[in-house]
């Protein structure tokens, strides 16, 4: 194995069903339903998926949701804003934990 991430591996995702077909079937049915238009449009969901993909830094998901966003009519400006949302939440998440740092430091201080 040269690398943990190989684009070809995304195409092997269905192999996850080989040793657990029932769970795989349920996952697929649920996954398919999640991304259908409902209270949110398919494009909004694709852009949310793109943002989450960046938040969890999953290369497979970034590949899949970049394509899905384009196929749902998003342009580069919308996709970039979605990534900024992920970055802002991740940045804010780090920063807000500074409150813990301050609380602990205050408790330990004279």
């Amino acid at each position: 194995m040269d690398t943990y991430y190989d684009p070809e591996d995304l195409l092997k995702f269905a192999e996850m069903g080989e040793d657990g077909p029932e769970l795989w079937k349920k996952f697929n049915e649920w996954y398919g339903e999640v991304f259908k238009a409902g209270a949110l449009s398919e494009r909004e969901k694709a852009l949310m998926g793109l943002a989450v993909a960046h938040g969890v830094q999953c290369a497979y998901c970034i590949d899949a949701f970049t394509k899905s966003s384009l196929e749902n009519g998003a342009d580069a400006a919308q996709m970039t804003e979605a990534v900024h949302v992920a970055a802002a939440v991740k940045g804010g998440s780090a920063l807000v934990h500074g409150v813990q740092m301050k609380k602990i430091a205050k408790k330990m201080g004279l």
């Binding site: 238009a37 449009s41 398919e42 384009l70 009519g73």
Partner: peptide, 11 residues
């Protein structure tokens, strides 16, 4: 680009 179209109604 090298991708398919969105749903006609949505776009």
């Amino acid at each position: 680009g090298a991708y398919v179209s969105p749903s006609q109604g949505a776009i």
